[in-house]
């Protein structure tokens, strides 16, 4: 083990990798929410339906979600290479990783959303039904506002998970800090790059968690 030397680090490359990771996070986070939130709402609504047909559809959907959640992300990424190519034209780099990140994280978020919605007091929902609220009004005016702290917590956990997914994507040609850590830190034994990359990701996770906790606290009324 030689001594560490941070002086020769390519800080320019570090910065670019950090920005690339943030970019991946931002896009994949956005699309994960766009996909995962409605999916979670649908899971919640269908899971409580009285109709047998809908309950069957729910079981199927729930099964698919479970499959996607149990496949290791690294394998999912490889399996999704053709899919990524067909959507964004490439399966590598920042852009090529985003479809796999979204497919990997959406079912995860959907389950968390479903759980958060289940925490909403049944009595409040009934009160709204009693006042003549339609299902869509109950979703937008009761479920989502009442579950807001839980939903922010779910989004935070999902984003943190996405940070580790982006790092993993470095193994199969993704970009960002994970890619840097693998290429320089692991393949070329440049421990300094590895340490800094990991430290930056830890910092990123800390910041996300703090921001998330703050939002949760801000919207908690109980």
């Amino acid at each position: 083990m030689g001594s560490l030397n941070f002086a020769d680090l390519n800080w320019q490359e570090m910065l670019e990798a950090t920005l690339a990771t943030i970019k991946m996070l931002a896009y994949s986070g956005l699309f994960t929410i766009i996909l995962g939130l409605p999916l979670g709402i649908v899971l919640y609504l269908w899971g409580r339906s009285n109709s047998i047909v809908i309950r069957v559809i729910y079981s199927v959907l729930s099964f698919v979600v479970n499959i996607l959640r149990s496949v290791p992300f690294i394998i999912l990424m490889v399996a999704l290479i053709p899919f990524s190519k067909s959507i964004v034209g490439t399966s590598i780099g920042v852009l090529g990783t985003i479809p796999a990140l979204v497919i990997g994280a959406s079912p995860f978020l959907a389950r968390l959303v479903e759980t958060a919605l289940r925490e909403v007091d049944r009595g409040v929902i009934e009160a709204a039904q009693g006042m003549g609220a339609s299902t869509s009004q109950i979703v937008t005016r009761v479920l989502l506002p009442e579950a807001r702290p839980g939903l922010f917590a779910a989004a935070t956990i999902t984003l943190v998970t996405l940070v580790s997914y982006t790092a993993m994507s470095g193994m199969v040609g993704g970009g960002g800090l994970g890619d840097l850590a693998i290429r320089y830190g692991y393949y070329r034994y440049q421990k300094e790059v590895m340490i800094i990359s990991v430290a930056l990701m830890v910092l990123l996770v800390q910041l996300l968690q703090m921001a998330g906790d703050r939002l949760v606290r801000h919207f908690t009324r109980k």
Binding site: D121, V124, Q129, G130, M131, G132, R141, V142, P145, F219
Partner: peptide, 28 residues
């Protein structure tokens, strides 16, 4: 849903929206 608007209801455990103010609860 239309008819239910003509029937008000109050509950043992109040069932108010915890995320909304008194004003917003009444405005609901």
């Amino acid at each position: 849903q239309e008819q239910r608007r003509k029937i008000g209801m109050i509950f043992q455990h109040f069932n108010l929206l915890s995320s909304a103010t008194v004003y917003d609860n009444i405005a609901f």
